[in-house]
Design a protein around this nucleic acid. Structure first.
Length: 565
RNA sequence: CGGGGCGUAGCGCAGACUGGUAGCGCGUUUGGUUCGGGACCAAAAGGUCAAGGGUUCAAAUCCCUUCGCCCCGACCA
């Protein structure tokens, strides 16, 4: 490919909307351009990299025995009624109407479509197991599109769906996808952690997320330093450790804390660290007020709280309700004397000498000991896990927090969709059975951005060879015919070796070509300049290590191959 | 949807408080010189200052409304 024949609009400055490195580089290297919030055009170079990621995914899916299909993005609303997700996913669904005023949905995912298909076409155990996949555009009306391709409203996803006759077979299909995902992200050059995850709106019983480790990631996760435990923060447990019981000490005493509402304010006012305060958070669980108690330096995890309560709807209580149940404005609620059910984090078991809201305006209680002065209905793991917490799975391990980008997610769905769509088969004995399902997603466009988030430096992108839009950047420094002729010769030699190159044939000064080549980030750069040409040599340089060497022109292609293997 | 910020040339920004000529850098076009880390000289093009309304002799600037974009929270690949 010749630079002068394509469109690579590199930018010298960071565009205003770019907030994180990968977004900045995608824009500056001319890979994508924004049309509107969460909607992006892939330019030629960006598309090449995207296709490379897709190809890796396709190869590994095929290798795992999955069958490629292509389903419509436009879907009738009826199938969403059948699954019951018209309601549960309504916030993210784009809807359109046809000329007869029928409502259609732009597919945010394809469980409904594939299950409807399978219910029609698969009737026998002889047709099972099967796994289908597609690489296709999804539409989600995200509450907040963010960071370029990281969270877009229209994006490309690889989604796969497995259909098995029983749990054991599902386990195998799940494992096959899990292993394929591991290989895919490895081939893409991504460092990922596999974590236990919450199943969310997808439903089903168990799931794992593939997290590309990055500080800019939207998800928190924890990992044990001793065993293999790793989990999304939404779900991460922490071991319950017996409290170091100190004697309860003096009885609760009221102190005036005018205007001190937040943990920080109370902490500063009473000269106590936040860990010595107890947060009392009033929630409405299926309409009934309840309170969660966690240490002042901890965050309540609502997913865990909902699980402890066994409720279906959970939300923070409004100020009116809080005033009603506690007799004080927001900021002065405490467990002592509170008449609603108290759910306490197990880290507070046996805690004494704590400070809590006094349930009256501008007052807090000190010298509070928990089981003595307020009796929770039980002790639960309610707070988010964090660095330093004990591992829930092994005796010695300590958890460590990190951030990640969710690039893949695998679910064991069970029969949620197959029951709704009557996906039933006859087993070897002629008995009717419901098909077991699994579903497996990779955010393809997100993966591409995650790669850049992990592989860049202060000059630009550092593509792994497997996904690089070009293997080699060819830079003829002088615009004369002879230099260009050698560059063309090298282009052909590389092509014969199966390597793709970008020949920068623009009439630009060397500095501009160097800067743009660094921005683009092809793994290898060949410079054809006067310095080497005098000795019949060109310079070969690796983008990531910046090592370079002069090699004879005729050996260049072979040397590049060696670099890339 | 709640909170915060921003819309001025293709990109990055100044001008706004204190109303009166639309400006800077980069990029673009043409000509010339230059050619191993974002060159230099000369000339040129490019703007209904997001949109609509109001105040005023006069609005990019003050007021109101709307729209768009970005960031922080609840959702997800």
């Amino acid at each position: 490919m010749r630079w002068s024949q394509t469109l690579i609009p590199t930018l010298r400055e960071t565009p205003q909307d770019a907030e994180i490195a990968s977004h900045t580089w995608m824009l500056r290297a001319g890979l994508i351009r924004k049309l509107a919030a969460g909607l992006y055009t892939f330019l030629p170079v960006g598309l090449r990299a995207l296709r490379n990621v897709e190809q890796i995914i396709r190869q590994e899916m095929d290798r795992a025995g999955a069958l490629e299909v292509l389903m419509p993005a436009l879907q009738p609303r009826e199938i969403w009624e059948t699954s019951g997700r018209l309601q549960t996913m309504r916030q993210v669904m784009f809807k359109v109407r046809d000329r007869q005023d029928r409502e259609l949905v732009l597919g945010p995912t394809h469980e409904e479509v594939i299950t409807e298909l399978v219910a029609r076409e698969i009737h026998s155990h002889r047709q099972l197991p099967r796994t289908f996949y597609q690489i296709q555009t999804k539409f989600r009306d995200e509450i907040r599109p963010r960071f370029g391709l990281m969270r877009a409203r229209e994006f490309i996803m690889k989604d796969a769906y497995s259909f098995d006759p029983d749990e054991e077979s599902l386990e195998q299909s799940y494992r096959a996808m899990y292993d394929a995902y591991t290989r895919i992200f490895d081939r893409c050059g991504l460092r990922v952690k596999i974590v236990e995850a919450d199943t969310g709106a997808m439903g089903g019983n168990s799931s794992h997320e593939f997290m590309a480790i990055a500080d800019a990631g939207e998800d928190g996760l924890v990992e044990c330093d001793a065993c293999s435990y790793a989990a999304n923060l939404e779900r991460a447990e922490r071991a319950r450790r017996p409290a170091t019981v100190s004697s309860p000490g003096s009885s609760p005493t009221l102190v005036a804390t005018p205007g001190a509402r937040t943990i920080e304010e109370v902490s500063a006012f009473l000269h106590l660290p936040p860990s010595r305060l107890i947060k009392t958070l009033v929630y409405l669980a299926d309409g009934k007020p309840v309170a969660a108690l966690v240490a002042g330096d901890r965050d309540l995890n609502e997913v865990k709280f909902a699980r402890a309560l066994g409720c279906t709807e959970l939300g923070m209580a409004d100020p009116e309700t809080i005033r009603h149940v506690s007799g004080a404005p927001v900021g002065f609620t405490g467990p002592v004397g509170l008449s609603i059910p108290l759910y306490a984090d197990h880290g507070l078991e046996g805690a004494s000498e704590m400070a809590v809201g006094a349930n009256q305006p501008d007052g807090h209680l000190i010298h509070v000991a928990l089981p003595r002065d307020a009796k929770p209905v039980g002790w639960f793991d309610l707070a988010n896990a964090r660095t330093g917490d004990p591992c829930p799975r092994c005796p010695k391990g300590t958890l460590r927090e990190m951030r990640g980008i969710e690039v893949g997610h695998v679910f064991k769905l069970g029969v949620k969709y197959s029951e709704a769509f009557q996906a039933i088969f006859l087993d070897a004995h002629g008995r009717k059975n419901t098909i077991r399902m699994g579903c497996y997603g990779i955010g393809v466009t997100r993966t591409l951005q995650a790669i850049i988030e992990q592989c860049h430096d202060e000059e630009g992108i550092l593509w792994p060879a497997s996904v690089a839009p070009f293997h080699v950047a060819l830079l003829p420094l002088a615009p004369d015919a002879k230099t260009l002729q050698i560059a063309t010769h090298l282009e052909n030699a590389l092509q014969k070796a199966g390597l793709e190159s970008l020949l920068d044939d623009r009439d630009e000064r060397p500095g501009v070509k160097f800067k743009d080549a660094d921005l683009l980030g092809c793994p290898v750069r060949i410079v054809i300049g006067e310095r080497g040409l005098a000795a019949g040599k060109v310079e070969i340089r690796r983008r990531n290590s910046r090592e370079s060497q002069m090699v004879p022109i005729e050996e260049a292609a072979a040397r590049v191959e060696a670099f890339l293997s």
